[in-house]
Amino acid sequence: YKIYPYDSLIVTNSISVKLPKDVDRTRLERHLSPEEFQEVFGMSIEEFDRLALWKRNDLKKKALLF
């Protein structure tokens, strides 16, 4: 996945969300650098992957990456 800054990946309720063209809309968190991922989620990507799907989705919603 290509890395993008968190600010360019957050999704708000506005209709005209302009995400970069090559971003996987269903896995926005994968486009964060490991350092920024840790900062946003408070855990590593590996720890995040071990969580239940509902928990990952809940965290993504709170981080505006859903």
Rank of each mutant, 00 (worst) to 15 (best):
D49T: 07
V11Q: 14
V11K: 06
N57F: 07
L32N: 00
V40F: 04
V23M: 04
D22T: 04
L59Y: 06
V17F: 04
P5L: 04
S44Q: 13
S44W: 07
L51G: 02
V11L: 13
R56P: 02
A52D: 14
E36R: 03
L59R: 03
P20M: 03
Y6Q: 02
S8P: 00
K18R: 11
E39F: 14
M43C: 07
K62F: 06
L19Q: 06
P20N: 05
E36Y: 02
D49V: 05
K55T: 11
E39M: 15
S33G: 08
L59E: 04
V23W: 02
Y1Q: 08
K21S: 15
V17R: 07
Y1K: 08
K18C: 15
F48I: 00
E36N: 07
K18W: 08
V40L: 06
K60S: 02
S16T: 11
L64P: 01
E35W: 11
N13P: 11
E47C: 09
R56Q: 14
D24I: 07
L28M: 05
F37K: 00
V40N: 06
I45M: 09
N13Q: 10
E47N: 09
V40M: 04
F37S: 00
F66E: 07
K61S: 07
F37P: 00
W54K: 10
D7P: 09
L64N: 14
L9W: 01
I3C: 07
A52L: 08
F37D: 00
K2M: 08
D22S: 04
R27T: 07
V11A: 08
K62R: 11
R50Q: 14
L53Y: 09
F41R: 00
K60C: 02
H31Y: 11
K18E: 15
P20A: 04
W54M: 08
I15P: 14
F66H: 09
E36F: 03
P20I: 04
L59F: 05
K62L: 10
Y4A: 02
K55N: 09
D22C: 06
S16R: 04
P34G: 09
M43R: 04
K62S: 09
D22L: 04
L65G: 02
A52I: 08
V17I: 12
E35A: 12
Q38L: 14
E35C: 08
K2W: 05
D7A: 15
I10S: 04
F41L: 05
K62D: 09
F66I: 08
S33I: 05
K55P: 03
L53C: 15
L28D: 00
R25A: 13
V40I: 12
Y4Q: 02
I3M: 06
S16E: 12
L19G: 06
R25T: 10
P20V: 03
N57A: 08
T12F: 15
I10W: 05
F48Y: 06
N57R: 09
M43T: 04
V23N: 01
D58G: 09
P20L: 05
F41V: 02
A63V: 11
L64C: 14
E39Y: 12
K55Q: 14
E29V: 00
K61E: 08
S8I: 13
L28C: 02
R30V: 05
V11H: 08
R56F: 01
N57S: 08
T26L: 12
P34R: 14
L65R: 02
K2T: 13
L53P: 10
A63N: 08
V40T: 05
N13W: 05
D7I: 15
P5I: 03
K55R: 12
R30W: 04
Y4M: 05
I10C: 08
R50V: 12
I3F: 07
H31V: 01
V23A: 06
I15D: 15
Q38A: 12
P5W: 03
F37N: 00
P20C: 04
E29L: 01
S44A: 13
D7F: 12
D58K: 11
S8Y: 14
K21L: 14
Q38T: 11
L32Q: 00
W54A: 12
P20Q: 04
E35M: 11
L64Y: 11
E46K: 14
F41S: 00
F66A: 08
S33L: 05
L32R: 00
V23L: 06
S16C: 15
S8D: 13
M43N: 01
D49N: 09
E46A: 13
E46Q: 11
L51F: 06
F41G: 00
H31S: 03
Q38K: 12
D24T: 04
P5E: 05
E47R: 08
L59P: 00
Y6R: 02
V23S: 03
L32K: 00
T26S: 13
I10Q: 08
R30L: 07
K60D: 01
N57Y: 07
M43A: 02
K18P: 14
I10F: 04
S8C: 14
D22G: 08
R25G: 07
E46F: 11
N13R: 07
I15A: 15
N57D: 11
K21R: 09
D58M: 12
Y6D: 01
R25S: 10
L19M: 06
A52T: 13
F37G: 00
S33M: 04
P5V: 03
V23P: 02
Q38W: 14
F37H: 03
W54G: 10
V17L: 09
K62P: 02
N13V: 09
S44L: 11
D24G: 02
S14L: 12
R27S: 09
K21E: 15
Y1T: 09
H31D: 01
R56S: 04
L19S: 05
T26G: 11
D49S: 08
V17Y: 04
S14E: 15
L64H: 14
A52F: 06
L65C: 02
D58C: 12
D49P: 01
Q38H: 13
